[in-house]
């Protein structure tokens, strides 16, 4: 059964159509990279698929069950989401923030026990923040906050991972190592991944499938090798692109 299905989905934000009668399926083991120009509606689509926005029409199902029938807490064990930015109004520690990922698993009156703390500490270790566990979140750099948000998602450990620009604020090394780590985590639960990216070469490197949102009438979906062609990418970004090959791998660069 598909992890995520949308049937004749129509989404509009502030009068702008994002997609129309859009059918989409994401199966276990598929890693989707979503590409598109600024303001084309990548985030809006992702938030709609996660149930944070009402579509104008159409149905969305997660793991075979209609999104409207999921209870939020049960859904949080299936579906995890990484937002573009995170807020911090009140002081909180890094470890406290990572531990919030355990919320969907704890009973109503439950308190985190050693098992939960171990999971959170392992996640911090994974993103190499184990030494910052007792730091205040508002003292972290942009990249460290991003890694903390990803660690929180590791703690949540869902089946379906929806990531909005996971590489935001990350340096070159962390972009690659964290995407590798994310793929390993998704693989470990035999889950699915849907991530918005701005780097074409990260999509070809890490994803099995690609979604190119040119406009609301043409959204190209399919396996990376079929969809990620020079022609499609040039019409996506309206910019001349050059294709290079090294060690049998294709790379795309703007001219």
């Amino acid at each position: 059964m598909a992890l995520l299905t949308s049937k004749s989905l129509t989404v509009t934000i502030a009068g702008k159509r994002i997609c129309e009668n859009f059918d989409f399926q994401l199966e276990r083991g598929q890693y989707w990279g979503v590409l598109g120009g600024n303001g084309v509606g990548k985030t809006t689509l992702l938030l709609t698929l996660a149930g944070f926005r009402q579509p104008d029409q159409g149905d969305i199902s997660i793991d075979g069950i209609n999104l409207t029938q999921w209870r939020r807490k049960a859904l949080a064990r299936k579906l995890g989401i990484l937002f573009q930015d995170s807020l911090d109004t009140f002081p909180a520690l890094v470890i406290e923030t990572a531990l919030t990922g355990r919320h969907p698993y704890l009973p109503f009156w439950g308190i985190e026990d050693k098992h939960d703390i171990d999971i959170a500490q392992q996640a911090l270790l994974d993103v190499s923040m184990q030494t910052m566990a007792t730091r205040q979140v508002n003292t972290l750099s942009g990249g460290e906050r991003r890694r903390l948000a990803i660690a929180t998602l590791f703690v949540q450990n869902p089946l379906l991972w929806l990531l909005d620009e996971p590489t935001n604020h990350l340096d070159l090394h962390h972009q690659i190592s964290l995407l590798q780590l994310i793929i390993e985590r998704v693989d470990a639960v035999n889950g699915g991944l849907f991530m918005v990216l701005h780097d074409i070469n990260l999509v070809t490197r890490f994803c099995t499938h690609a979604m190119l949102i040119i406009d609301h009438e043409s959204i190209l979906c399919g396996p990376v090798e079929e969809v990620m062609t020079l022609e499609n990418l040039q019409s996506l970004y309206q910019h001349p692109i050059k294709e290079l090959e090294s060690d049998g791998i294709k790379y795309f660069f703007p001219e």
Binding site: R72, A74, R77, F83, S86, L87, T89, A92, T100, H103
Partner: peptide
Amino acid sequence: SIARSLNLLANGDQQAMALGV
């Protein structure tokens, strides 16, 4: 009884919703 959910709400509505509140 809702204190743990309040901790999540302090991090923003969307983040709280994403974690099941």
